[in-house]
Design a protein around this nucleic acid. Sequence first.
RNA 1: GGCGACGUGGCCAAGCGGCAAGGCAAGAGUCUGCAAAACUCUCAUCAUGGGUUCGAUUCCCAUCGUCGCCUCCA
Length: 466
Amino acid sequence: MALKIYNTLSRTKEEFQPLEPGKVRMYVCGPTVYDRAHIGHAMSAIVFDIIRRYLEYIGYEVRFVMNYTDVDDKIIERAKQLGIDPFALAQRYIDDYQRNLEALNVKPATLNPRATQEIDFIISMIQKLIDAGAAYVVDGDVYYRVESDPEYGKLSGRKLETMNAGARVQVDERKEHPMDFALWKAAKEGEPAWDSPWGKGRPGWHIECSAMNMHYLGEQIDIHGGGTDLIFPHHENEIAQTEALTHKPFARYWIHNGMLTFKSEKMSKSVGNMITIDEFLQKHPGDVMRLLVLNGSYRSPLTYSDEVLEQTEQAYRRLLSAKKPALPNAPGISPEKAQALAEAAQKAHAQFIESMDDDFNTAAAMAAIFELVKQINQARAEGATQAQLEPAQAMFNELTSVLGLQLQEQAGAQTSADPFIDLLVKVRNELRVQKNWALSDKIRDELKALGVILEDSKDGTTWSWE
RNA sequence: GGCGACGUGGCCAAGCGGCAAGGCAAGAGUCUGCAAAACUCUCAUCAUGGGUUCGAUUCCCAUCGUCGCCUCCA
């Protein structure tokens, strides 16, 4: 039994073998910070967070790098519109993004390099590409020469001959080949610029990722990730640039997440159908976003709608139900049944591993977890003590936390109200003893309106925040 | 136009050669003063048409439909 990963490069699932035993070098393309992040970004961040957490869970030491593209045309354009400094704009959205990631319980990367902090490294890399004949200079711009790479197109499955056939893009006549792409862009008046052997300018988009990879992870890495929309041209170009210098396979496994779709359409800024992460989190716990992702395959499009969201909210509540303690005054279940519960926990673990090992099949992994939820709830309903529930609940906590779920009941600020609620519950129970149903129901209804849920059982009453 | 992916119950979604996971919703029941929660039970032959096979949701071909990439994009 071993981990298998679907590799975009080979279009098959391959057994995972890192370059160095026990260690994983992983790079994920982060956002271009010119606007607030939407839930499509959240999906991607969560997908790779789950992959990273699982790799760590099965014992790998993961060096996880995610970059920020903090200089590009859109940032410059946006800053100009707003009349502010482009670097300040980028910084603001980087801060936003980090706050979003934290709220989504995405583990911080080992390193978050930025394009603007890698200029020297980028320039020296471009120079080497020119020296190697893989790039050329035109009027202060530097372009990568795609025809210098016989393997160009291997990731996206395209051929240079067929690519320009339907191209709708205005071809820059100065380029040797229409598909040649910019490594360095000459700066226009008033744009952020750095000195270079080719004049003032800034790096192109693709080269920064190649540079940061090489700088922080080395000439070869294990996993390179991003959304499917990055396969071409971004990742194709990264491969071309990097391999032109190293003559070695760049990333061993290319992993791409599917797009989040809203009303059958990809959610993106250009379509204008975006929901920001902030907007989402105002209405829902971060766990719900994560469950949305976990419900399906990371490689497939994720259907987003109000209906699906409601279903996910319900599933979230069901998961929470597994964490409830034993009933008050639980009499206990037979040793055989307690043993069966402990075995169910082991079985869930085995199924979880088996599923995750199969290209991170989170949907199947969740099925194993839901099965465990059922077993726990069943045992509790039959009167298991807390000690008897313990092993199964510990397993539940372990597995859900590997997936990055927090599953914390609402708590914290409300704690000062707790004694008063306890008091109301106590009073209400006296009313119930007196069979004063009208008043006791009223208390329950009004507490509900305040967000407190009362649940009566034959052994007593429990309450929780909604 | 080129390349690619997908089409599984009311909804979301695994599976991908041998009697179709899981979640939500729905219906019936247990428990409860009632309610809620939980528990029990019920609920699909896998877009359509051919083909390969002892046997196909799973492989092949065709058709219809949806989506992505080819331009910035997670």
